[in-house]
């Protein structure tokens, strides 16, 4: 159960993991996510589901902190402690006409299932992906296949436009591109900017929020977000919300709630990376 079938560092700091979990593979719909735990003391980290096969599902995990660090150091064949999911509401997938998809770093993987599903509904897909530099771009061929127009933006200008999703988006809209629906997945800052651009043109915008989560079934409330003045839970009501209603500032403050604890956890129990143990004592349970 929860065995890591395949694991590869797709681009620096982003790992492609294929995990065997039959019912997630069967039931997951585009836009849903899973919560993983590397070991019983690890945190519970939410990951968007990118692809599903017979009894395995694929995720693109950004290593950001101790728990994703532990997973990043695991080898194929090892087992995760727990996999919960598929969680969250599936993304709205209907025929809209012209659909814009924006993906940033881990979001490049996350928008792929949406692109496939929306394409199947006959939409015309315009995809914009962003990354810090050309060596951080992945899944390009697959995304090109499902997109009618495909743009790349890098913040150092090493490939495509020198800028971000919002730079390309702004240019497209000013050149007369019309969109009937927009979805953005990536870092909060990018989703906020893109929502602010689509707002004046009243393009229906959906964003998948990456809040801190605990149980993932609506009990603890630490993933609460105020959307249109009302408090919503990203794990059960989301993760997809109307980009124009989200209170971004509050979301950002919440995400930084545990900065101190995260830093101290590096200190008091600095994560003993598995390579450390394997090299010296060969204790790993392979």
């Amino acid at each position: 159960m929860y065995e890591i079938v395949e694991k590869r560092e797709e681009v620096p700091n982003i790992h492609r993991l294929i995990i065997r979990e039959p019912n997630v593979a069967k039931k997951a719909k585009p836009g849903q996510f899973v919560i993983l735990m590397p070991d019983e003391k690890g945190e519970r980290v939410p990951m968007s589901i990118v692809e599903t096969k017979k009894d395995t599902f694929t995720i693109f995990m950004l290593e950001l902190g101790i728990t994703t660090g532990k997973i990043a150091n695991m080898h194929p064949g090892e087992k995760l402690y727990a996999v919960a999911g598929p969680l969250g509401q599936p993304a709205e997938i209907e025929y809209y006409g012209n659909v814009l998809l924006g993906g940033g770093c881990y979001g490049i993987g996350a928008i792929y299932p949406l692109a496939k599903a929306l394409k199947a509904k006959g939409n015309r897909i315009v995809t914009i992906i962003e990354a810090r530099s050309k060596y951080l771009i992945y899944l390009e061929e697959k995304l090109r296949i499902v997109s009618d127009e495909f743009y790349i933006a890098t913040s150092d200008g090493s490939r495509g436009t020198n800028g971000h999703v919002q730079t390309v988006l702004d240019r497209l809209i000013k050149n007369g591109h019309r969109f009937d629906h927009a979805k953005f997945i990536g870092c909060t800052y990018m989703m906020m900017n893109c929502s602010n651009i689509t707002a004046p043109y009243r393009i229906p915008t959906r964003v998948a929020l990456n809040t801190i989560m605990l149980d993932g079934s609506g009990m603890c409330g630490c993933c609460r977000v105020s959307v249109g003045g009302k408090t919503k839970f990203a794990c059960v009501d989301g993760p997809e919300f109307d980009g124009h209603q989200v209170d971004w500032a509050e979301l950002m403050k919440r995400k930084a709630a545990y900065q101190e604890a995260e830093m101290i956890s590096y200190q008091t129990s600095p994560h003993i990376c598995r390579a450390l143990i394997e090299n010296y004592f060969g204790e790993s349970d392979e």
Binding site: N73, A275, E278, N279
Partner: peptide
Amino acid sequence: MTSDSLKI
């Protein structure tokens, strides 16, 4: 790119 690939 785990580090053990470095060992020669």
